[in-house]
């Protein structure tokens, strides 16, 4: 069994000159939560990002993930669904730890573009988009904005304090950085068994 270590707190901080504020850039497999006036930025291909915030306190966060392949399609227990649920839960748990209330949470979701060529599983982006919407519906977290699927990568800017989101569709890509990062992430997930460590105390 391979222990999942892919959901990591983003650590790429910088000062964004365009918006004149401190920012955090999230890469595939990362999440970040904050109660500060920060900008969270990510670039999505077929991955999805959920921007979730407490609509009263402004405590908010973002994740960036995709589902791994695995298990029986349609089974509620397949590795894909279990990993996706984990990726969402870890973001929500961190928000609650910072003081957000579950009943106040609202979400904006982005990504899931069908932009990766040559993959064995068709509609990777669609699958990611379907998952995140279904998860939020099950958890009764309101989706107040979405920009999903399509064929273009997106750059997403999320300001948790104000809830503002700006999305830029990247119609012209000058290099393969986005798809290469997602391929690397996908390769890591491919090996994942979607089961965490177990320890018995007695």
């Amino acid at each position: 069994m391979v222990e999942i270590k892919d959901e990591q707190v983003a650590s790429n901080f910088y000062f964004d000159k365009s918006f004149d504020c401190h920012a955090v850039k999230l890469l595939p497999g990362e999440y970040f939560v904050t109660d500060k006036d920060l900008l969270l930025v990510t670039v999505l291909g077929s991955c999805v990002a959920a921007c979730i915030r407490d609509c009263y306190s402004g405590i908010g966060g973002m994740n960036h993930f995709m589902l791994p392949d695995g298990g029986e399609a349609g089974s509620p227990l397949n590795a894909s669904a279990r990993y996706g649920t984990y990726a969402m839960e870890i973001l929500i748990n961190q928000l609650l730890k910072l003081g957000a209330r579950r009943s106040n949470l609202e979400a904006k979701v982005f990504g899931g573009g069908n932009v990766l060529d040559g993959l064995t599983v068709a509609n990777v982006g669609q699958r990611n988009a379907d998952f995140v919407l279904k998860f939020l519906q099950t958890e009764r977290i309101r989706v107040v904005a979405q920009d999903l699927v399509d064929i273009f990568p997106r750059k997403v800017y999320f300001f948790p304090k104000s809830s503002k989101v700006m999305v830029k569709k990247l119609r012209n890509q000058h290099n393969t950085t986005i798809s290469q990062r997602e391929r690397d992430y996908r390769q890591r997930l491919y090996k994942v068994d979607a089961g965490g460590e177990v320890e018995l105390f007695s």
Partner: peptide
């Protein structure tokens, strides 16, 4: 739980937990 830190596990153990499974769980 999603918690996998040693400190949290130690608290659980001290409080009488029988075992600790880190999410995502393998059925």
């Amino acid at each position: 739980t999603t918690e996998s830190g040693d400190e949290m596990k130690a608290k659980g153990r001290a409080a009488g937990a029988t075992g600790w499974l880190v999410k995502p769980f393998d059925p």
